Amino acid sequence: MEVKLIKQLAPELALYHYNDIPVLALKHAVGTAKISLQGAQLISWIPAHTEQDVVWLSEIEPFNKGEAIRGGIPICYPWFGKTGTPSHGYARLQLWQLVSYDIQADVVYLNFLLETENAESVAHIEMTFSEEFHLEFTNYCIEQEPQLALHTYFNVGDISQSEIQQLPTTTFNVLTQQQETVPPTRVVNEYVECIYPANERNVIVDTINQRTIEILHENASEIVMWNPWHNETSAMSEEGHNTMICIETARISERLAEKPVGLTIRVK
């Protein structure tokens, strides 16, 4: 992969090209992060108090313009799944603008805007980096009643030795197309794609990396959990599923209105 510095925006913030895609790189006292302007997609976040990345990114990701990036937090909007074309919406394939940033001693704010060709605002994202990470998504297309999923890929040392805790006890299993009763704590050792009714908080116990990842959902209607296991998935190696789990903050059945949808991640 070719990495080229394009512009130094501030001492802590620079813009690079990763092959065809512009990527912001943050190096700050609170930690480091990388955000692709294609999709306003967080692809790396390492808080200052941790060693491992919190989000997972495919080691074979080609960073080709116009192709979905496998990992981080893709923004599935204005639809989820195969409701339209392209799958999971166009927002993750389009360039967003970095419209403002505020770098303080103990916190960093980055603001991104998606516009139409006529410069009409479609959606806004604010990312906040401190000891925790917060993403707030605001939809401006009220008439269309779009859907949203913050399709977060979490990085774990070994998925078979990790637990996902504090899940709801009912879920729609996409693979069987059935509603099921499930335990609140799950260990993933097979292909899983489940849509849960939203609760406020989930926890990933990452045993190998000796950490817990707390996930807070704000104004979500569903939580989606996904791991493809050995099933062939674009831009993912045969072993890629061993170190990731997707826990998604979503608005699928209840469409987006004016109230923002938020995601907060804390690592302990």
Rank of each mutant, 00 (worst) to 15 (best):
Q147A: 13
P11S: 07
I195T: 02
Q144P: 02
I265T: 01
M225Q: 05
E59W: 10
T170E: 14
I245K: 03
A250Q: 03
A40H: 05
S100R: 12
L95I: 10
K82M: 10
E190F: 04
H241M: 03
V205C: 14
M127Q: 10
N118K: 15
S36D: 04
L57F: 07
C141I: 10
S87I: 12
P86H: 13
A257R: 11
S130R: 09
P47R: 02
S160F: 04
K268L: 10
R70W: 08
P184S: 14
S237C: 12
I245A: 09
A10M: 07
E2I: 15
L37K: 04
P168N: 06
Q52N: 15
S87T: 15
L110G: 01
K7Y: 11
V192N: 01
E132N: 13
L42F: 03
Y18I: 02
E238A: 14
V3F: 09
E136P: 05
S44K: 09
F172V: 02
V122C: 14
T85W: 03
T171I: 01
I252K: 00
V108I: 12
E67I: 11
L13I: 02
I69S: 01
E190L: 10
F129V: 06
N111C: 11
L9V: 05
P260T: 09
W229C: 04
T138W: 09
E238V: 08
E193T: 05
V54S: 00
Q178D: 12
I215F: 04
Q144T: 15
I204M: 12
P78S: 08
T85L: 06
I142W: 11
S237V: 10
T181V: 11
V224G: 01
Y196V: 00
G66C: 08
I35K: 02
I6H: 11
V203C: 06
N155F: 00
E193K: 10
L15E: 03
G89Q: 06
A91K: 07
L15A: 05
I35F: 05
C141Q: 14
Q177W: 02
E238P: 04
H124Q: 13
I75S: 05
P260G: 06
L263G: 04
Y16S: 00
E145L: 14
I125L: 14
T185W: 03
